[in-house]
């Protein structure tokens, strides 16, 4: 399966298993979603379970919170993560805090799915990576898959989790893995690692990272599309890097990170999001605090620049394998 099919399969399983699961969002019903993620679900489960919603992200998320308080387990889709901001207040002030502020009386078992990330000539408002904004919010989990197998297993875990989850889907990976080499032909998921997706129910646990490549010289912390970029950069540089796909950025798998950095003594953090205040800053601080005596070089970050995501300069902005490779060499030299 490609990632779209895997996500579709996850939602199919969730709808089949639990009558309290329902899905709504802009264009997700009859049409099946602008990325086809909910294709066929309304036809299979009725418009009561899968339906189109007004163009109002604040309303979508608020309505989901109300449904969650009633006892349902809604999945809402924000068409692009760039358009999640009208719902920011509802996520930050309401979904994330409901359990806490009500002393556990009310909970918000909602999942907000949203395509995110660049590398598709999406310009300013179809390319953003806002995960850092949400990692600063207490009470919400943020999950980002990097392959179809994880996408399905993590989405099932997210929806079955009793806490609110922001589920960011790297749209650049929907149809195939992408390593940043935009000049090469696009590969489909067929025969790629992580494309073998079971048809039924299974979970990939939240809060657990995956070691994508074992290595001894350097630890690379990545998620989403950057996992694939890091893998290619590792092949191209010949540096024996250990690549950790965080999968959940909050709660974070700190044990996996610590263990790896203490082994390698070096750490490179890569993400598409802008640098200042990005999640990489948190990762860097944690590694510095917990692995200080094992570090043989300063921690490096290869990230998007601190500018809005441009259109023309897509490949000067996107942290591709050459920039990641240079970051790796810098850490090795440090």
């Amino acid at each position: 399966m490609n990632m779209v099919q895997a996500l579709n399969s996850a939602m199919d399983v969730l709808l089949k298993n639990d009558p309290n699961v329902l899905i709504f969002g802009e264009d997700v019903g009859f049409f099946g979603g602008v990325f086809r993620c909910t294709d066929g679900l309304q036809q299979r489960y009725s418009s009561q379970r899968v339906f189109d919603a007004p163009i109002a992200e604040g309303g979508l998320i608020a309505v989901a919170i109300g449904m969650g308080a009633y006892g349902l387990r809604p999945i809402v889709e924000c068409q692009f993560a760039d358009y999640i901001y009208p719902g920011f207040d509802q996520i930050v002030s309401e979904a994330a805090r409901l359990r806490y502020r009500s002393g556990g009386e009310f909970t918000s078992p909602i999942t907000v799915r949203s395509p995110y990330g660049g590398g598709i000539f999406g310009g300013q408002t179809h390319s953003q990576s806002p995960e850092g904004l949400f990692s600063h919010v207490c009470g919400i989990k943020t999950v980002i898959p990097s392959n179809p197998y994880d996408a399905k297993g993590l989405l099932i875990s997210a929806v079955e989790d009793d806490d609110p989850v922001l589920f960011l889907e790297p749209k650049r990976l929907y149809n195939g893995p992408f390593d940043g080499h935009h000049d090469r032909p696009v590969k489909p998921w067929t025969d790629q690692a992580g494309a073998d997706v079971p048809a039924g129910h299974y979970r990939v646990p939240l809060g657990k990272a995956a070691i994508i490549r074992e290595g001894g010289e350097l630890t690379i912390l990545a998620y989403g599309t950057m996992v694939h970029v890091a893998l290619t950069a590792t092949q191209e540089t010949g540096i024996d890097a250990e690549i950790i796909d965080l999968r959940t950025i909050l709660p974070l798998d700190i044990e996996a990170i610590e263990e790896s950095v203490k082994k390698t003594g070096r750490c490179l953090i890569v993400h598409e999001a802008t640098r200042t205040g990005g999640f990489g800053a948190e990762l860097s601080a944690l590694v510095q605090e917990r692995c200080f005596h094992h570090l043989e070089a300063p921690i490096e970050r290869v990230t998007g620049w601190d500018t809005p995501y441009p259109h023309t300069f897509e490949w000067q902005y996107f942290p591709g394998p050459r920039r990641v490779g240079e970051g790796m060499r810098k850490v090795m030299a440090g």
Partner: peptide
């Protein structure tokens, strides 16, 4: 009596969601 939030108006669309859930069930 739903948990009161300091953020104004947030509970209005939430009430609508609760009502939709009740109708759905």
């Amino acid at each position: 009596f739903f948990s009161i939030s300091g953020n104004l108006a947030t509970q209005v669309p939430q009430a609508v969601g609760w009502a939709m859930a009740s109708a759905y069930k």
